[in-house]
Nucleic acid binder design. Structure first.
Lengths: 139, 139
DNA sequence: CTAAGGGCTCCCCCCGCTGGAAGGTCAACA
DNA sequence: TGTTGACCTTCCAGCGGGGGGAGCCCTTAG
């Protein structure tokens, strides 16, 4: 299989696949004309990578997951640990985003959004730390 | 004020402030020794930027917000529009993360996490698109 | 006089790709 | 046989939003 074929199969852009080779995630063979030649197993790995990335795992996570995937003797505990840590990262991000959302939604509600210049959003962004602390406490 | 002073006041690292000058968000003066000299207004802008960035606004958003902040004739509708768009971006990200979280949490639950190699997490990551679609539908 | 603690510029690094230029290869068709 | 046009190759640059660090200058206190 050439790169275009695995790209179609895995849903990853060819550029990304070349990059994954660069950083050592896949190691396709080369045919005499210099083209990359992918085996079935490479195609599987790439599909695996695509799904892991879609779940938000970092490239380093993927590298470790792939190593475990290939290791028949692995302990599922190792995999679970990686996934759990990732779950925590996701939870952290969700929390952060929700806090932003809450503040922002509040400000958007307060803002008249008309032709006048008075704007609570700008007022909040420009206000001093002391006031911000007060707002936080009252919220 | 030198850069260290505004860094302390705004809570932004000096590096970041230099970067903001680079991209034209602030335009401090220079004193004869080459040091940046920040006015009160620069300090306010930087604090403004720090808070806008903390709410997740992109640099380009910040640029626009800052312009509106400085424009006494602005219409609050313009500010509100930027904020609303950002709110939508945040909602999109939260949704995305929640979907990841749901899938991942399910997998983590299923995984025994012991010394044995059997692992539903790896099984899911390596399984074919058809099966994935089925799982999605049943979920 | 010297040392510490600012400040300055400059360039490379991070992540995870993405785009583009300049060129080689291959299959189909006239 | 020549010529398209779709592939493929490498390499270099850049995104956002800074961070790290080298190697230098300036200032102030002891």
């Amino acid at each position: 299989m050439n790169i275009g074929d695995v790209a179609t199969l895995s849903g990853l852009p060819a550029k990304t696949i070349r990059y994954y080779e660069d950083i050592g995630l896949v190691k396709p063979l080369r045919s005499s004309n210099g083209y990359r030649t992918f085996r079935e197993s490479d195609a599987h790995k790439l599909a695996f990578l695509g799904r892991a990335r879609a779940l938000g795992f970092t490239i380093e996570d993927c590298r470790n997951l792939l190593a475990l995937y290939e290791d028949e003797e692995r302990a599922s505990a190792e995999v679970k640990e990686i996934a759990k840590q990732h779950l925590e990262r996701i939870d952290g991000k969700i929390k952060e985003l929700k806090e932003m959302r809450a503040t922002l939604a509040h400000l958007v509600e307060e803002c008249a959004g008309d032709h006048r210049p008075d704007c609570p959003i700008l007022a909040d962004l420009s206000m001093k730390r002391r006031d911000e602390d007060m707002r936080r406490k009252s919220a």
